[in-house]
C-alpha cells in the first residue's frame, strides 16, 4: 500500500490477516489495553513526544518490529490528528511505507469489526534513522521561507484562534475542514476543490502549523499529500514555540468576534 496516504479498512483487515502489516495504535495505554485492532502495537503519542529525537524514534520503531521496509498503518481516536503526528515522525526518520487508517478506532468499532486485548509478540528489528529535513519546518526555516512567493503558510487551528492571533501571512484552514463523510480526510476531489478555490497551487511549497505539537497540522500535512501536494512541510513545534520565541504575530483588529461564540 505504499504511496497512498490512507489505508482502507478492508486493506488493513487483510494486512492483519496475512501479517503483512504493522498496525500502530497511538491512543493512551489504558485505552489500548481495553481493546484494539488485532496485532496492533501501542505507541501513545505522549510517549513519542516526550523525546522525539530521530535516534530514539528509530529505536522505538525497531522495538515495535518496524524496520525500514515494514508496511505501517497508524490509527487513533482523535479524527486522525494524533495518528498523523506519529506517521509524520516515522516519515521524518526516513520510513517510506506509512499510511493512516481511513477512519478512527471508533468508526472501526461501530462497523463491528474485529478487536482484541492481546498484546502481540513482537520480534525486535533494526530501523535506521536517515532524517528527511525536507518535510520539517523549524522556526528559523519558516521565518525566511514565508517571505518567498512560492511558499504558503497554513494555520489549522479553529477560526477564532486564528483571527485573534496567527503567524503573519498565514491562511486559515481549520482542522475540521480536512475530514468529512466519516473519513479522517475528505475525498481527494473535495480537497483539491477547496485548495483550488483558495488559490493554493500545486507548485507551491506549503507549511502547516497548529497550536502546540503539530497534530492538527500533521493531519493537514496528510490532507495536502492526499490532494497531490508533494511539497509540504510540518512546522512541528507550531504556534506555541513561535510565541515563546516572541516572533511577530498578526490579528484581525477592531472586531469582537469572540462574543459571537456560544461557548
Amino acid at each position: 500500500m505504499s504511496g497512498a496516504v490512507t489505508a482502507s479498512t478492508d486493506s488493513v483487515r487483510s494486512g492483519v490477516r496475512d501479517k503483512s502489516l504493522r498496525v500502530v495504535d497511538v491512543r493512551r495505554a489504558d485505552d489500548y489495553k481495553k481493546d484494539h485492532i488485532p496485532t496492533a502495537v501501542n505507541l501513545p503519542l505522549a510517549d513519542l513526544l516526550s523525546d522525539d529525537d530521530p535516534g530514539r524514534v528509530a529505536k522505538l520503531a525497531g522495538a515495535m518490529g518496524i524496520d525500514n521496509e515494514t508496511s505501517v498503518v497508524v490509527y487513533d481516536d482523535t479524527f486522525g490528528a494524533l495518528a498523523s503526528r506519529v506517521a509524520w515522525t516515522l516519515e521524518y526518520i526516513g520510513h517510506a511505507d506509512v499510511s493512516l487508517l481511513e477512519g478512527t478506532y471508533a468508526d472501526w468499532k461501530s462497523l463491528g469489526l474485529e478487536s482484541d486485548s492481546d498484546t502481540p509478540d513482537v520480534q525486535k528489528k533494526d530501523h535506521a534513522a536517515s532524517v528527511r529535513p525536507e518535510i520539517l519546518a523549524t522556526a528559523e526555516y519558516l521565518e525566511s521561507a514565508k517571505e518567498r512567493d512560492d511558499v504558503i503558510l497554513v494555520d489549522n487551528r479553529e477560526r477564532l484562534n486564528y483571527l485573534e492571533q496567527h503567524i503573519p501571512g498565514a491562511i486559515s484552514i481549520p482542522y475540521r475542514t480536512l475530514g468529512g463523510n466519516g473519513r479522517i480526510l475528505r475525498s481527494q476531489e473535495e480537497m483539491r476543490r477547496l485548495l483550488e478555490n483558495r488559490g493554493v497551487s500545486d507548485t507551491s511549497e506549503i507549511i502547516t502549523y497548529c497550536g502546540s505539537v503539530g497534530t492538527l497540522s500533521g493531519l493537514a500535512y496528510y490532507a495536502l499529500k492526499s490532494a497531490g501536494h508533494k511539497n509540504a512541510r510540518l512546522y512541528v513545534r507550531s504556534f506555541k514555540e513561535w510565541k515563546s520565541l516572541q516572533k511577530p504575530t498578526a490579528k484581525q483588529e477592531d472586531a469582537s468576534y469572540w462574543d459571537l461564540s456560544a461557548e
Partner: peptide, 29 residues
C-alpha cells in the same frame, strides 16, 4: 459552522441562520 465558520451559528430575528467569519473563497463550499 465547524468547517468554514467559528464553530457557532446564529439565529437571526428574520428566521435566517447565519454563519460568520467565513473566508470568501469558502462561501461556495
Amino acid at each position: 459552522s465547524e468547517q468554514y465558520s467559528i464553530g457557532s451559528a446564529h439565529f437571526s430575528t428574520r428566521e435566517n441562520i447565519q454563519l460568520h467569519w467565513v473566508i470568501l473563497e469558502d462561501v461556495s463550499e
